[in-house]
């Protein structure tokens, strides 16, 4: 696994993920720096966070999960990489898991960059003190966890379809209705593309639609669907590989 991940890192190092990663963080940076906020410092931090997390969670995060998954598999689909990997002394299951780990790592990096950019923007504006570390950290971490089922699903699609475009189309087509989906208290928690946004929003009294769904039930669904998508993709990979 360690060997596989270090090989994944080499392949990622020279890919376009580094151009895609800064998009949401730049937005967060701009919001914290220049957006009209009700408070500067204190409650202003969460206000800036909520604005940027809305854009990020609603669109960019689910889209990027799909793009990263497709990129990670494209290295292998493009010119016989799967075959070479599997003819080397590595376990087929580990090959699949290393891809998922690389994907989860990229999303974690994205969340960290988002947080860092938000802080940098705020500090530049002169917001000092009162950074709600715990609340912010919990929201970013929650967003990462909520991406895992989507990551497992997109990885499965990216492996199963050797075309680069197909999994991207899947990701885009299901990300676009997010805006409508999050209004449905019943449906949204089950919708993998909406889960990241739901998880990234702090629970509050004035929440609407699916934002009222208690965190506990949301994460139960997330955990269950992650296990399901991971198992399905993994089994498919094992069967196809050997």
């Amino acid at each position: 696994m360690r060997r596989l991940l270090s090989a994944e890192w080499l392949k990622l190092r020279r890919s376009i993920v580094w151009l895609l990663l800064p998009v949401s963080p730049l937005i967060a940076f701009a919001v914290a720096w220049k957006a009209p906020l009700e408070a500067i410092g204190g409650a202003g931090w969460m206000e800036a966070y909520i604005i940027s997390a809305n854009v990020h969670g609603l669109m960019f995060l689910p889209l990027l999960v799909g793009i990263f998954a497709a990129l990670l598999c494209r290295f292998e689909h493009a010119s016989g990489g799967w075959k070479q990997l599997l003819a080397l002394p590595v376990r087929p299951g580990a090959v699949y898991l290393s891809k998922l780990a690389a994907l989860a790592g990229l999303v974690a990096l994205l969340q960290l960059l988002l947080g860092a950019a938000l802080l940098a923007g705020g500090l530049l504006r002169g917001m000092d003190g009162g950074v709600p570390w715990a609340e912010l950290g919990r929201a970013l971490l929650g967003g990462w966890v909520a991406c895992l089922p989507l990551a497992a699903l997109q990885l499965w699609a990216s492996f199963a379809w050797s075309s680069f475009a197909a999994p991207l189309v899947l990701g885009t087509v299901f990300t676009l209705p997010n805006m409508l989906v999050v209004n449905s208290e019943r449906f949204a928690p089950w919708y993998p593309w909406a889960q990241p946004l739901l998880a990234m929003m702090p629970r509050s009294e004035e929440g609407f639609g699916a934002f009222n769904v208690p965190a506990e039930s949301l994460f139960l669904v997330i955990g269950g669907s992650f296990a399901l998508f991971l198992a399905a993709g993994w089994l498919h990979f094992r069967r196809r590989a050997v």
């Binding site: 060997r3 596989l4 270090s6 392949k11 290295f75 016989g80 070479q84 080397l88 002394p89």
Partner: peptide, 22 residues
């Protein structure tokens, strides 16, 4: 097997480094 496997976006040396790490 069949045709050579490679990563086009990496150099020849980096390609070998991927295999070397594995």
């Amino acid at each position: 097997v069949e045709y050579p496997s490679y990563y086009g976006h990496l150099t020849g040396r980096e390609n070998l480094e991927v295999v070397r790490r594995l």
